[in-house]
Amino acid sequence: MLEARLEQANLLKKVVDAIKDLVQDCNFDCNDSGIALQAMDNSHVALVSMMLKSESFSPFRCDRNIALGINLGSLTKVLRCAQNEDILTLKAEDAPDVVNLVFESAETDRISEYDIKLMDIDQEHLGIPETEYAATITMPSAEFQRICRDLSALSESVSIECSKEGVKFNCQGDIGSGSIHLRSHTNVDKPELNVEIDLTEPVSLTFSLKYLVNFCKASGLSNQVKLCLSNEVPLLVEYALSNNSYLRFYLAPKIGD
């Protein structure tokens, strides 16, 4: 059986909120290392990969591998019934028909309990190759969100160019063009504002802004976001969570002519 207790329902609420517009039905794969999810969007352009390590729960118990096939719309409805600060416990039997969610308020004696019917989801898993990326950019997640939002007003695509000069986000649209240039930046008082650019080779890639704007819904999960790029491979956008847990998005590039 599975029993996983989260100190704050908020974490799961934010994760599900960040991915529910990209993927609808997906398996939460539970085993003794934690709860993982991997799913492509319908058009097979983006891939979501979530890992909530067992250390992110206290306690965490999962005796055998269980795949919980859940509709994220349904999960969202139930998670809305939890307060952000509620303690959340997920429970499931070994061959479950439902997943059970219990929300406990630490302040009051209120305990609420919901069951969500599970679905049989035949989901392919993709092997994600280990990649030594040519460029890794760590920056404030709010800054990345702003860049994607601003440029999406002008164009469908953004080119991300990383060189010794820094990183440049460029777009061209019908009304004109826009570009934002960032350099490495260290703020001792506010390290969450740091921009770190780790470059082994110059990179230039083009991506759909629609997907990037979607990924940025995860901005509330982490002050910083990591962008990993290599020429002609999918972009990795990573939001690191506590205890080595993470929410990652991969986006296939647009490649020309």
């Binding site: 492509m40 097979h44 898993h125 695509s157 491979v233 986006l251 296939a252 647009k254 490649i255 020309g256």
Partner: peptide
Amino acid sequence: GKNQKSILGFFQKK
């Protein structure tokens, strides 16, 4: 112009 690639062109099904 540039064409949107599929993620399946990069990551193989297990």
